[in-house]
């Protein structure tokens, strides 16, 4: 247990201990387990908005399952193209280190997000509107993803020092990840669950495109 927390601490501090790590299959397994654990816990907190007893308990479980799904699916959808682009840029030898940096950042992102969990619950208890709950979560996600970007840059520092091309690829990764992540987040709604409705895993109308909806909103706003 102590080791576990020491490990999490070293990820957040981006400490040099991590560089001694061997990139074996157990390393990857551990990383995904950490990602799953933290996002499961935050997802559960997200789902507590409408209460935790009775039928609403299902929403808690759904949200807890969906958040890990969001992070891992986004990661795996973006990975193939990132791998090919790294290879094409002549950086294949560094790819195991790149993978490790990306996974550490994912773990870091989820820990940061989880650190908001108590605040989220208190926020839920103190506000009475659904949109305020959504807004707070947006804030938490925004802060977590911005901090994770700083973390990613730290993990990438050695790589960038070795070859400047890593910096360009890092930006490509952030773009790819955000592009896929936003759409996947939209498809996997609801994470919080509108109160007074029965919990559901997917929304009926969820299968559409987030970017189109944003465009339509902007268009409506301009047309006014």
């Amino acid at each position: 247990m102590k080791n576990f927390f020491r490990k999490m601490d070293s990820i957040l501090r981006c400490s040099s201990e991590l560089k001694k790590e061997k990139f074996s299959s157990s390393f990857y397994l551990h990383m995904f387990a950490y990602i799953f654990l933290w996002s499961f816990l935050y997802g559960a907190c997200m789902g507590t908005y409408g209460g935790v007893w009775g039928e609403r308990g299902w929403q808690l479980l759904f949200s807890a399952c969906k958040l890990p799904l969001l992070f891992t699916l986004t990661f795996f959808l973006s990975l193939p193209s990132y791998f090919i682009l790294n290879t094409l840029a002549g950086l294949r030898e560094d790819f195991s280190q790149v993978m490790a940096s990306l996974l550490y950042t994912q773990v870091g992102l989820n820990i940061i997000l989880f650190s908001f969990a108590p605040l989220t619950v208190v926020w839920y208890l103190s506000v009475n509107s659904y949109s305020a709950a959504v807004l707070f979560n947006c804030f938490a996600f925004a802060v977590a993803s911005l901090s994770a970007q700083i973390l990613l840059k730290k993990f990438y520092q050695d790589l960038i020092f070795k070859d400047r091309k890593h910096l360009i690829l890092l930006r490509v990764w952030i773009f790819l990840y955000a592009f896929v992540g936003i759409q996947l987040g939209w498809v996997l709604r609801p994470f919080i669950g509108t109160p007074n409705t029965s919990p559901q895993f997917f929304r009926e109308e969820a299968w559409n495109n987030a970017y189109i909806i944003v465009l339509e909103l902007i268009w409506k706003f301009l047309a006014k």
């Binding site: 795996f76 959808l77 973006s78 193939p80 193209s81 791998f83 090919i84 682009l85 094409l88 790819l176 592009f179 896929v180 759409q183 996947l184 498809v187 969820a206 299968w207 559409n208 495109n209 970017y211 189109i212």
Partner: peptide, 23 residues
């Protein structure tokens, strides 16, 4: 084609959940 097919999963995902033909 290597780059194209590596972007394939992303395109498949968007194809599956987009109704807008023009997008």
């Amino acid at each position: 084609l290597a780059v194209l097919s590596s972007l394939g999963p992303i395109v498949a995902f968007f194809s599956a959940c987009t109704t807008s033909y023009h997008f």
